[in-house]
Computed example of a mutant assay.
Amino acid sequence: MSGRSLPRFWKEAAMREVEGGFAVVLDDRPVKTPAKAPLVVPTASLAQAIAQEWDAQGDRVDPLSMPVTRGANAAIDKVSVQHAEVAEMLIAYGDSDLLCYRADSPMELVARQAEGWDPLLDWAAARYEARLHPRVGVMHAPQDAAALERLGAEVRAMTAFELAAFHDLVSISGSLVLALAVAEGHLSADQGWSLSRIDETWQQDQWGEDDEAVEMAEKKRVEFLRAHVFLGLCRV
């Protein structure tokens, strides 16, 4: 599916089980990705959600209204052909994880960060035997390589479809640990989003809202929640 608007040429979209998974057909014509690969996904739930997006189109196709389709296209055309590279890029976030970079003042912000982020670092230590350590300030200090390797094993084991969704959870939040917590259901997507915004929320509390920043944050929040939905559809 390209980025340009195309006229609707079908009456009904449907899901169909095929070899290797589930496909979406438009009046019996299989949907293909922008790279012309068959759009075959791992679960019936994901295929059904894609079919619903196509069915919801009006006289012309609006790609921006089809986030599940776009996610499936990305998984097939991009992530599947460079799975290792994408995984390693996301694993690298652990070495500079948002949760580990702390303020030294004011004390209210220091307390908010500790209250919100320390339990997640404790969770990762218990869940994966991967203890990441907080640092004060913004200068990079490497984390323990063995801990990063244990976190990395979880990422490398993801399918291309899971990794496509996980990419957004990590890149939007800035945290590998927080993204894993959301992916595993330890946090809800809303909780994860809020915890990723502790610094921004504190600044907003001090100085008030900036309309442009609020608008940008809302777009990121929507994408974060959509990534979580897509990940769930990949697994049921």
Rank of each mutant, 00 (worst) to 15 (best):
V236K: 14
R29G: 00
P7H: 07
V214I: 05
E17N: 05
L169D: 04
A157G: 12
E212G: 03
A179G: 09
V31Y: 08
E209Y: 01
E85W: 01
K219H: 07
S45C: 04
P134E: 09
A23H: 05
K78D: 08
P7K: 12
R16G: 00
R16V: 14
V18R: 13
E115G: 02
A145I: 05
D211P: 09
E19A: 15
V68T: 14
L169V: 02
M139G: 02
D27Q: 09
L231K: 03
D211W: 09
R70C: 03
A35E: 13
D118W: 01
E162V: 01
V138Y: 05
L26Q: 09
E212T: 09
D77S: 11
G58P: 12
V81R: 15
L163K: 08
G208T: 04
F224C: 07
S105N: 05
F161T: 03
A111W: 00
V31K: 10
E149T: 08
V222T: 13
Q113N: 08
F161V: 03
V81Q: 14
A111I: 01
D55E: 15
R102H: 13
L148I: 04
W202P: 10
F22I: 04
W117K: 06
D205Y: 00
E108P: 03
G137W: 06
L176Q: 12
M1G: 14
A179M: 09
T201Q: 14
M107E: 14
E162C: 05
P119Q: 10
L176G: 10
R156I: 03
W117M: 04
E200Q: 15
E17Q: 15
L231I: 00
R150H: 06
G152K: 11
A160E: 06
A183F: 13
A37M: 12
V40F: 12
A14K: 15
R70Y: 01
E215P: 00
R127W: 01
W10C: 10
L163N: 07
K219W: 02
P142T: 04
E223K: 15
V136K: 14
W207K: 04
S175T: 03
A84W: 01
L64W: 05
L195N: 02
A147E: 07
V24D: 11
T69D: 06
L132F: 05
G174H: 06
F22E: 06
E218K: 15
G152S: 09
D190E: 15
G71K: 11
A189K: 13
L26W: 04
V138C: 02
E212H: 10
P34V: 02
P119E: 07
L178W: 06
I50Q: 10
D77G: 09
A37E: 14
A114P: 04
L178Y: 06
G152V: 05
S2G: 15
V136S: 11
E85R: 05
M1L: 14
V40W: 13
R102Q: 11
V68S: 03
G94M: 10
L169W: 03
